[in-house]
């Protein structure tokens, strides 16, 4: 459904993405792994229209996303739990979640979805009236993900969803991602925790300094010697 073809993205003269091509099929979990500064977040930002590619194309179900402004891309059902969270600091948890549902025309299941988010993150329910900016780092991460879920996206872009979370919660997050996927959400997952990511993903891409150097099924990547050495910390 989502296809990037030879995407080049720049920050000024910094050539951050040097011809990325990747596909995410309906119902898949695809993971993007790579070291710091490889361009993972930039790839997600480019898909979401926050950065515009200088050349190449981003196509979702036949629609050329790279020609659309960010808010229209969101309207098409692309939601992101961004790196750095980007929650609304002076809005309450509840208001943040409501903002997540802004794209939806049909709000009949709003309360059910809210309950769903709260059942995933009971912590958020306890804090509905607290300002987003005063949440702890991990709580903000939950809020960012909850907010993205409230949009009921067709494709969910997750940028390091486990960052800053306690190990138990990391497990929970990965279970959640898997469950969401089983419920029909397509997911593009960026993770530092490559082992975890590869264990739930169907396929994966390895990114290095703006280029894709490897792409394979998650299982194969996990067994790949280079991947093991560079990203899984296996000696």
């Amino acid at each position: 459904m989502l296809e990037l073809k030879d995407v080049h993205t720049y920050y000024g003269n910094i050539h951050a993405l040097k011809g990325i091509s990747l596909t995410v099929n309906d119902g898949e979990i695809v993971t993007l792994i790579g070291s710091n500064g490889a361009g993972k977040s930039t790839t997600l930002r480019t898909i979401q229209g926050l950065n515009k590619p200088r050349s190449g194309s981003v196509v979702l179900n036949g629609i050329e996303l790279h020609k659309l402004p960010a808010h229209e891309i969101a309207m098409l059902g692309v939601a992101q739990s961004p790196e750095g969270r980007m929650i609304f600091p002076r809005m309450t948890v509840m208001e943040n979640l409501e903002m997540g549902a802004y794209v939806r025309k049909d709000l009949t299941s709003f309360n059910d979805d809210l309950e769903h988010v709260f059942s995933l993150f009971p912590r958020l329910k306890e804090r509905v009236t607290q300002k987003g900016g005063t949440l702890s780092g991990g709580e903000q991460q939950m809020l960012a993900m909850g907010r993205a879920l409230m949009a009921k996206p067709k494709i969910l872009l997750l940028d390091e969803p486990s960052m800053g979370l306690a190990p138990l919660l990391v497990e929970l997050i990965f279970d959640t991602i898997k469950k969401l996927n089983q419920e029909g959400t397509t997911i593009l997952l960026v993770e530092q925790n490559a082992l975890m990511a590869l264990s739930i993903a169907h396929r994966g891409y390895v990114l290095q300094t703006g280029e894709i150097i490897l792409s394979d099924s998650a299982q194969n990547l996990k067994n790949d010697e280079m991947v093991q050495k560079s990203y899984l910390g296996v000696e």
Binding site: L50, H71, A74, F88, M91, M99, Y102
Partner: peptide, 24 residues
């Protein structure tokens, strides 16, 4: 209204607002 909420979102964080589907 919906417009009012988008004003507040823009005031808080324009990029995040755009990600929520708000036309800045």
């Amino acid at each position: 209204s919906r417009l009012g909420r988008s004003w507040m979102a823009i005031r808080e964080d324009e990029l995040a607002a755009a990600q929520m589907g708000i036309d800045p």
